[in-house]
Design a protein around this nucleic acid. Structure first.
Length: 637
RNA sequence: GGGGCCGUAGUUAAGUCGGUUAUAACGCUGGCCUGUCAAGCCAGAGGGCGCGGGUUCGAGUCCCGUCGGCCCCGCCA
């Protein structure tokens, strides 16, 4: 610190140097240690906690209790001193009377987040001083003995429910953030959900089994996290994107029903609902078809939501993929509100409006969204919506305001009266409404209108805040064509079975083959998905072929599965639920970071531990890794 | 790879057209205070504006770059 002060002197003159000096002195821990009167810390000794703070009730009045926890707040009246003592269960008020002598004097020195143990008598609060906002508000603990078990430095932010602290600070001091009741409540609920899951699945014959974390890299799907092998130089393990192949192998082994609450890893960019490591409730069953899986899993979801105090009534509604995309534009429809898409392709394919006619003639679609009372939208609103449309691939956004004076719209002049009538008839538009159009390739038009629907739903407050709207999406297409790679890719994953009645279309119309795949969607969020798997090696080989995975490559990548399929594989299928997403919906969290104890930032870093970080050259040498391009990293103090 | 928003005491924010010594609240420190529970009253300490350049007589304010956080597209089931 002296060096720093000297440097500051050279750089900025006497005033700066003095400031630097004094502040370094103040922040120097050793100096502090000598200068400040160290709180006399005590040992726990033979003290045993008698209950959690929030468990002290009127029934305990007159009893002696021993409580341990953190000082939430001190209210020092000079005479009387009140301390709110906090543990994971909640708060209770401690009272230190002036006649308590030394105990009272030491209570004066307590500060926020000191860890203390107290022996005292439970008393009824004097009339008029009860706190109705506190579970323990009718009582208080009159302190007789006090042990200060640890002190605390002043906090970077207060441990309160209504924090308004930058997330970067919260993440850096995650241990403090986690002291807040709001987060504790979420994580305690997560524990209960995990317990119910284990209980329910075990009761239904599922066996909890572990699968490897160091596994084989698979080229399909997301980017893998790789782990270099020291014992096999130049080779790499991958962290599992899911235990998919292992759980299928367990079915082949005859375990019949498997489950696991398991971490999965995907090295892709993050979102509010996506972390690079996340937790799945993973399950697989033998000798079943889609309906069996769905039925058992609806029971699981019901049990999970009971923990959140919600009573669900399965079976949940169903919707095919085609219907979901047709009506809502997306495969994860938020069915809490209407505002559905209307198809105008057939009626407007011959339109004089070139944008519509072109879209239809090229095999695309013309669809519309009718926003009730949307004619009040301002130019700015429409510009916002257009911007959203463009961000999802539209070339623009055609709109019509139906006003008292008639159609107010940049495209009205291109439409005949007959066409206008058809549009009104199909969309159900009335005076005061707003129509938005999407005319493009089906995927673009649906996505654009689907996203606009969500935005407008939020904007107009159409989305109910309470309630859980579940829907199973079924009959997904098996394959999608990747324009960039010029090949078919699996929509779900390459082990998903095609629907029996579509199998013969595999060679003639591959894009029309539907899969035995299903997703569970809750309030517009995909919370789980699964499929019936291919259990015959001949069909599996055909699918790999269709996906453009050569025999040799398939052998190399999934040889063990193809082998295993030859040795008596039962029909089987399963599902995986995203536990983090389920928890974030149950707890009403904005982001899944709020239901994960130690989440990562959008750049995939951990601000608390500062991971990832550079490693010693020696460590790299041991695993035969050479860093090709060193990134200049700002030196950290 | 791209678009948007943000970065000023420990925290949350204000800071005008570029102009003296950068404001406030909460927190913190000290004092007073026997029924508070966001205790109250009084006093005080604390930052040079994420970082690095540039323009200027002068930059928290303007320009360029960079780092970090959040939201989104692409990516990802």
């Amino acid at each position: 610190m002296l060096v720093e002060a000297l440097r500051a002197f050279c750089a900025g003159g006497l005033r700066n140097a003095w400031r630097k000096f004094t502040s370094s002195v103040r922040s120097c821990r050793i100096f502090k240690h000598f200068m400040e009167v160290q709180t006399l810390l005590e040992r726990l000794g033979d003290w045993k906690r008698s209950s959690y703070c929030a468990e002290v009730t009127a029934a305990d009045i007159g009893k002696t209790v021993t409580l341990m926890g953190w000082v939430q707040r001190r209210r020092d009246h000079g005479g009387l001193i009140f301390i709110d003592l906090r543990d994971r269960a909640g708060l209770v008020q401690l009272v230190f009377n002036p006649d308590a002598g030394e105990v009272h004097a030491r209570a004066h020195d307590l500060r926020s987040e000191f860890v203390i143990a107290v022996k005292g008598t439970v008393g009824e609060r004097p009339v008029g001083t009860e706190n109705p906002f506190l579970k323990t508000g009718k009582v208080e603990v009159v302190a007789k003995e006090l042990k200060v078990l640890n002190d605390s430095a002043p906090l970077p932010f207060m441990i309160e429910d209504d924090t308004d602290v930058a997330e970067t600070t919260r993440l850096k001091y995650r241990y403090l953030d986690l002291r807040r009741a709001a987060l504790q409540k979420k994580l305690l609920l997560r524990h209960r959900v995990a317990m119910s899951t284990r209980n329910y699945l075990a009761e239904n014959g599922f066996i909890e089994m572990e699968t490897p974390v160091l596994t084989k890299s698979t080229p399909e799907g997301a980017r893998d996290f790789l782990v270099p092998s020291r014992l096999t130089p130049g080779s790499f393990f991958a962290l599992p994107q899911s235990p998919q192949l292992f759980k299928q192998i367990l079915m082949i082994s005859g375990f019949d029903r498997y489950f696991q609450i398991v971490k999965c890893f995907r090295d892709e960019d993050l979102r509010a609902d996506r972390q690079p490591e996340f937790t799945q409730i993973d399950a697989e069953m033998s000798f079943v078809d889609r309906e069996d899986v769905i039925e058992v899993m609806e029971g699981l979801i019901k049990r999970i939501f009971e923990e959140a105090g919600a009573e669900l009534k399965p079976p949940f509604p169903r919707m095919t993929y085609a219907e979901a995309v047709g009506r809502f534009g997306v495969d994860n429809p938020d069915t809490r509100f209407g505002l559905e898409l209307k198809d105008l392709t057939d009626s407007l394919k011959g339109s004089g409006f070139k944008v519509f006619a072109d879209a239809a003639s090229k095999g695309g679609v013309i669809k519309a969204l009718c926003v009730k009372n949307g004619a009040v939208f301002s130019r700015k609103d429409l510009d916002d919506l257009t911007e959203i449309a463009v961000s999802f691939g539209a070339r623009g956004l055609a709109w019509v305001k139906i006003t008292e004076e008639g159609w107010q719209s940049p495209i009205a002049k291109f439409l005949s009266d007959a066409e206008k009538e058809t549009i009104v008839a199909i969309s159900g538009a009335e005076k005061g409404d707003l129509l938005l159009f999407g005319a493009d390739r089906a995927s673009v038009a649906n996505t654009v209108l689907g996203r606009l629907r969500l935005n407008i739903g939020g904007r107009l407050g159409l989305i109910p805040k309470e309630g859980y709207n579940f829907v199973w999406i079924t009959e997904f297409p098996m394959l999608d064509y990747d324009e960039a790679e010029k090949r078919f890719v699996a929509v779900h994953h390459p082990f998903t079975a095609p629907m029996d009645e579509d199998l013969d279309k595999l060679d003639t119309e591959p894009l029309k083959v539907r899969a035995k795949a299903y997703d569970l969607v809750l309030n517009g969020s995909e919370i789980g998905g699964g499929s019936i798997r291919i259990h015959r090696s001949d069909i599996q080989a055909r699918i790999f072929e269709k996906l453009g995975i050569a025999k040799e490559e398939a052998e190399l990548r999934f040889g063990f599965l193809l082998d295993a399929l030859k040795f008596g594989t039962p029909p089987h299928g399963g599902i995986a639920f995203g536990l983090d997403r389920i928890m974030s919906i149950i707890t009403g969290s904005e982001s899944i970071r709020d239901v994960i104890a130690f989440p990562k930032t959008q750049k995939g870093t951990d601000l608390m531990s500062d991971a990832p970080s550079a490693v010693d050259q020696k460590q790299l040498d041991e695993i035969f890794i050479r860093v090709a391009r060193k990134v200049e990293k700002q030196e950290k103090a």
